[in-house]
Design a protein around this nucleic acid. Structure first.
Length: 576
DNA sequence: GCCGTTTTCGGCCCGACTGTTTTCAGTCG
């Protein structure tokens, strides 16, 4: 799959063109192409071969030709030329809040700033502030932007941002005495990481509400405070900072603002184009026919007027949700999940006993859970030797006799060893109700090796699920270089489910892979990988990620009854 | 660079805030 490489190149072309003062519309055309390619379910090289690449919206003749060159030569001329004409460290400066292409260009052309170090020096020497268009305050902002970037290391994981957002929304509601505060932005779309937290308040006294917001005790720094808009920094429990933006809008515009600030930007552009075609105007205050507001009090009304059903926030990524609005799947919901298929106990590295996990799961309304502790090679995580595994199986069988209303499945998270061999022999695996096979070591092996290893594990009749298939840790570790197309194909052929690990550090498979898997006919297994009772609640992150992948209830193994789940596992074992 | 109920040229989403400016450019979302 070359999509990720292509997306990165087209994104770089956009940045480089912007710095060199290229046509802004051309810049956004490249940005759109990058995003589109990244979201493609199929390999761009395959579409190219099939001759259908140009049919993809946002991909035109010129982009197709560039992709053709990349496939043939591994490079794109325009990209190479731009790279040669712009200092290497310059594009990264665009990430600094307060610093855009125009200012980067000025610093480069007038002061020969080539990278972050040069930029810092030009700030310290006062040279930057002396440039036309710059001043003491804008340079202060740039300095603060650099510090913010260095402190926050970019984006905030979903699981860190949601608790912060909820706390702030509640605090603001109480302090400002307002009725409605909603979380919007990428957080409402449940993106795996977010750039900032966006809150929306219904009210009329904008400056009072913004003042109240910027004086909340958890606010570390105020970056902007106007009549309707405020922006602050808040410390997260992880020790990073996250930016929180608040907008205040009148009640009659609340739906329009909710729609607008939920985004994504690309989705909104598409909606506005629909509005323009009908000779209307859409903005954060409503949908307007001339001066007359024809929708905007609620979100659904806007979509309805534009001839669309209310598109769930998780789908608003311009990945086909508008063109296919009439045929959207009925997305998976929290309540569809009947059990959690991946959790640990004190038998390996979990904090709670099997019984405690079962009780906590029952309180969440589950009908079954699978205890999947680590296998023997995983010594660092207190992996279980065979004898301990057998003791655990016995305890689970005993426990099931006394538990009412919930069934505990005896499972394990069995390591896939270097050659694709499993960490327990088949006669041991045969004793278990559910086997998840996961790669925990050798994640840096080459593509062919990691792919073959995973596929070999799938061919084992006892392996029902492949755990966290790509091995990524968000913000900390890249995914393995695994051939996901081949893994999905093998999953379908071998009747093996692919995990969607709901832990917010993993979210693996990710949204687009989940979509690709389900469209290919594979089944997903949602599991929290909980190491404590509290972590069982992170299932929501998995469900939302599945929704982002257009996944319906029937694409998920653990929406099925216990009997149907057992049958899925048995079918594969019998085939062998 | 993309696209077409303005259809092969000439548009391309829209508004708030800030700072450096005397009316607006740059940045951001």
């Amino acid at each position: 799959m070359i999509n990720r490489e292509l997306a990165s190149i087209f994104g770089q072309i956009a940045d480089l063109l912007e710095i060199t003062g290229g046509d802004p519309f051309r810049v956004s055309a490249y940005r759109r192409a990058a995003r589109t390619i990244e979201g493609l379910a199929e390999d761009a090289a395959d579409l190219l071969k099939a001759g259908t690449l140009e049919e993809v919206p946002g991909i035109g003749k010129s982009t197709v030709e560039k992709i053709r060159q990349y496939v043939a030569e591994g490079k794109i001329d325009l990209h190479q030329e731009l790279l040669a004409s712009v200092p290497k460290g310059l594009p990264a400066l665009l990430q600094i809040p307060g610093l855009g292409p125009k200012k980067v260009q000025a610093a480069w052309k007038k002061l020969n700033v080539q990278d972050l170090e040069d930029l810092k020096k030009s700030i310290a020497s006062g040279q930057l502030a002396a440039l036309p268009g710059f001043g003491a305050k804008s340079v202060d902002n740039i300095r603060a932007g650099i510090e913010f970037l260095e402190r926050s290391a970019g984006r905030t994981p979903l699981g860190v941002a949601w608790p912060v957002a909820r706390t702030l929304a509640e605090a603001l509601k109480a302090a400002a005495k307002v009725r409605r505060v909603e979380v919007t932005g990428s957080l409402r779309r449940w993106c795996e990481t977010i750039g900032d937290v966006d809150l929306l308040v219904a009210g009329t006294e904008g400056s009072r509400i913004i003042r109240t917001f910027t004086s909340l005790p958890m606010v570390r720094e105020v970056r902007a405070a106007g009549e309707t808009k405020g922006s602050v920094l808040v410390a997260t429990p992880e020790g990073t900072d996250v930016q929180v933006d608040v907008r205040v809008v009148p009640r009659e515009s609340f739906g329009a603002a909710l729609q607008y600030f939920t985004g994504s930007k690309e989705h909104n552009v598409r909606l506005r184009e629909l509005a323009i075609r009908k000779k209307w105007k859409l903005n954060e205050y409503g949908l307007f026919d001339g001066d007359k507001q024809i929708a905007g009090e609620d979100e659904a009304g806007i979509y309805r007027k534009l001839g669309l059903p209310l598109i769930p926030p998780e789908l608003r990524e311009d990945r086909g949700e508008i063109d296919n609005a009439a045929r959207l799947p009925k997305l998976l919901e929290d309540g569809d999940i009947r059990g959690d298929l991946h959790m640990h106990s004190t038998y390996s590295d979990g904090r709670n006993t099997i019984e405690e996990m079962a009780e906590a799961a029952q309180a969440l309304g589950y009908e079954y859970i699978a205890i999947c502790d680590h296998s023997r090679s995983e010594t660092i995580a207190n992996g279980m030797p065979v004898e301990r595994l057998f003791r655990q199986i016995e305890e689970i069988r005993r426990l099931n006799k006394t538990l009412k209303g919930i069934t505990v499945l005896a499972g394990c998270e069995c390591d896939i060893l270097a050659g694709g061999k499993l960490d327990y022999p088949d006669d041991v695996l045969a004793q278990l109700d559910l086997v998840i096979a996961s790669v925990h070591t050798g994640l840096g092996q080459d593509r062919k090796t990691v792919t073959a290893r995973t596929i070999k594990a799938m061919q084992n009749p006892y392996v029902a699920v492949i755990g966290h298939p790509t091995g990524r840790l968000l913000g900390r570790r890249e995914a393995m270089d695994i051939d996901i197309d081949a893994v999905i194909k093998a999953a379908v052929e071998t009747h093996t489910a692919l995990e969607l690990n709901a832990s917010w550090q993993r979210l693996d498979l990710k949204d687009t892979h989940a979509r690709q898997a389900v469209e290919a006919g594979a089944v997903l297994a949602l599991g929290t990988d909980a190491h404590s009772t509290e972590q069982l609640e992170t299932m929501a992150y998995g469900v939302r990620t599945a929704r982002r992948g257009w996944v319906a209830k029937d694409g998920v193994l653990n929406t099925r009854t216990l009997a149907a789940l057992r049958k899925f596992i048995e079918t594969k074992r019998r085939k062998a």
